[in-house]
Amino acid sequence: MVDLLKEERIVLKKRRHWLVIVLELAPLVLAALLPPLLIAGVSSVPQIGLAFSDYSELAIFGLFAWWLFIWMIIFVVWTNYYLDVLVITNKRVIDIEQLGLFARDIVEVRMENVEDVKTEVLGLIASLLDIGNVYIQTAAESREVIIKNIPNPHKLREVIAQYRDEL
């Protein structure tokens, strides 16, 4: 996936913090839980439940179809998260971002072009879980590379600075 240069080795691989994927998947899980609760609720009302029993097969069909659909969407969301990777090598910083299923953005910055690295941790939850953004100022065509919602951003800054200074 990443073609390494001569004498290049991968130092660090990072993905966005797990909280990001949890927050993205939470509405889908709720959407999966809602229909059975609705069916149970409707069935428990005597008059409605009696009429509903004529269409119970349809309801169960709809439920399984809905769950299958949600299952697929969960994996689309997960794949989008999983394929966003930040790769730090001893020579480059490579930010791979999957934008939906049909778009992919790869930004590659050579260590000698890294001018400045800034980290930002904002908010209570971010501070407690050590989630932040990393801003890499470069001398390259892409002036600034922004990596969002990364765990241990300060450590990442130190690693980039270390390998930039070694060059």
Binding site: M1, M72, V76, Q98, L101, R104
Partner: peptide
Amino acid sequence: LTTVLNYHWNRYGI
């Protein structure tokens, strides 16, 4: 969707 997901996992999974 399964075809697309499978393609992505095979091509870009590290």
